[in-house]
Design a protein around this nucleic acid. Structure first.
Lengths: 338, 338
DNA sequence: CTGAAAGCGCTAACAA
DNA sequence: TTGTTAGCGCTTTCAG
């Protein structure tokens, strides 16, 4: 299986020259006689010669493969970031190998090891939700493989990261809720140690403060980001004697589950409860009512992550940079009360 | 950049034996003295030796990389199939490189060439919507690279394919519409040459026949599968003097756009128009009303595609097999009229 | 039981 | 201007 490809040797034999002559001719080396060069190039063209990346890789100790690890590839947020990464990297002649950590550190560690063994030239990661330890990423650094985190990040002191202005956006949504008459604003969020969770919660608290609302800890619920867990959190909130009149979700996926739970018990959005999420997925405008959400520049996140990897490869040394991308609040029906 | 990894040579030098001895010891070759073998294995372990896949690849002429080309990676249908492929292939020690054709043959051809140049060990494809020509896939076959198509397929005579029972499902939805009082059933579909389009249209016609409804060609509209095009198609249908009272979409993404268009002009679902789609995306239960849809076993599609590739690699020859996977009709609010 | 050598496809320093 | 050689890391005959 798999037909043998044309090699330099084949061309050299046919033209009765040495392999290195062919090699040089094909890279337009000026040393080679013009006539001969053209002859070689023509045959290479005709035989459809393509250098073997395995051989090149072995020689240069590089694979031109960049690893990408995301919590899951099914969520719009991640898949569209991957799209951004791919666009940028493909142009530069790199390939990406995507691995899903399925939100588990265990799997994340496996992925890192697999990719390292594959000898990737760089690694782009969004942390799994339960990723506390950073030992496996230190290993990447030890191997001197360029590393970039996006959205959920760690090791910020040593690694380049792409993040968004979580604090200000969470703050703005919270005050926006208040301006639309909400007094009991809840926040369904994720695992405590994640930067996005900390930051969005911080923004939420700031927003409450600006609105002059006292923080009530029963309105802040942590989940593991799964739809089930988000559903449970919602039920818990709705079972309170003092039901919240607005809920901010740590992302849209969480809010979709919240929506389902709210509708199930017969409450109306936005009349009874205002809703907003983060990431502005495609389906934010499909659900009813349309969801207010913070639009993340997913393609930009992807492109920037790719660029940062490329930069490090080019420079041949680790770069520690932090890029904060601006997001946009898309206000829709779910958070407007007349 | 990128620290040198431990090689057989390093171990050989340290232990003052030959490289080949180390190589043999590490694969438990019985020839090697047990003591020596253990010593070598211990050092390899300690130094964290991992064979260089580039060197192995060069030797064996294989990369352990499988290419995957999909129309886009952002749609739930495709990303969850990719997940299925990855699950299966990862277990077998293969990596996947994903490329998006963005529904364009042009890009599809580029992807095929890129992947071929990368020397992939196999290729899994879902055709781009405007992919008429099959020349680029014939090239894959010429290179004797295992090839599998799923969902949107071609070259069925030569290549393995994974498809679903489109005809019967489209038929069943159509009669289901009829049973719920629909008389003017429309079908918004995709480009004519795609197998899924042909088959679903065929099922639609069968359903009409069973229901005793005459086919009216103004109720069958082809799109290029984009949200915009689906929106336009819907508007066209709704502008008819005899508006349809049910619409079958060729997939859920199309139907989501249809939903938006219907709501915009103030018609109600399901009271005025019944709706159903194909693929049962996650968001089918988030939209309002919840969408009736044919659930595709996406993970199964992915796993089967991967298995078929693996089988061909193992057998060392092309296999022509057609796997038809069963789907399930999930009836929800959008198609029920009391 | 172990080692030397060839070769996978390619590049680059060194000869000629 | 062109060829020879070594070497990237590994496996696998073939010798010893």
């Amino acid at each position: 299986m798999k037909k043998k490809r044309v090699t330099l040797k084949d061309i050299a034999k046919e033209l009765e020259v040495s392999i290195s002559t062919v090699s040089r001719a094909l890279k337009d080396h000026p040393d080679i006689d013009k006539k001969l060069r053209e002859k070689i190039q023509k045959l290479a063209q005709k035989w459809n010669y393509i250098p073997n990346p395995l051989a090149m890789g072995l020689l240069r100790q590089q694979t031109r493969v960049i690893g990408v690890i995301v919590p899951d590839i099914v969520t719009y947020f991640f898949s569209s970031i991957i799209e951004g990464i791919e666009n940028e990297l493909r142009e530069a002649g790199y390939y990406i190998v995507i691995s899903s950590s399925k939100e588990s550190v265990q799997k994340e560690i496996e992925c890192v090891n697999n990719l390292l063994n594959l000898r990737i030239d760089g690694l782009i990661v969004c942390l799994a939700q339960d990723s506390h330890s950073t030992a496996h990423f230190k290993k990447v650094l030890e191997h001197e493989v360029p590393l970039v985190f996006f959205d959920r990040v760690c090791l910020e002191k040593k690694v380049s990261t792409i993040v968004t202005d979580n604090i200000s956006m969470a703050r703005d949504i919270t005050t926006h809720f208040f301006e639309n008459g909400a007094k009991k604003i809840a926040h369904i969020t994720g695992p405590k140690h994640l930067n996005i969770v900390k930051e969005r919660a911080e923004g939420y608290l700031k927003g409450l403060e600006i609105a002059g609302i006292n923080f009530d800890k029963k309105y802040l619920i942590h989940t593991d980001l799964s739809p089930e867990s988000a559903g449970r959190a919602t039920k818990k909130l709705l079972a309170l004697p003092e039901k919240p009149d607005a809920i901010l979700g740590v992302n849209d996926t969480v809010i979709f589950s919240t929506m389902k739970a709210i509708k199930r018990i017969g409450l109306r959005i936005p009349e009874d409860i205002l809703l907003a999420g983060f990431s502005d997925e495609f389906h934010a405008t499909v659900v009813e009512p349309q969801l207010t959400s913070v639009a993340h520049p997913t393609h930009e996140i992807g492109r920037n992550a790719a660029k940062l990897i490329l930069e490090q490869i080019l420079e041949g040394r680790p770069i520690q940079k932090k890029i904060v991308l601006n997001t946009e609040l898309h206000i829709r029906e779910s958070s407007i009360r007349n």
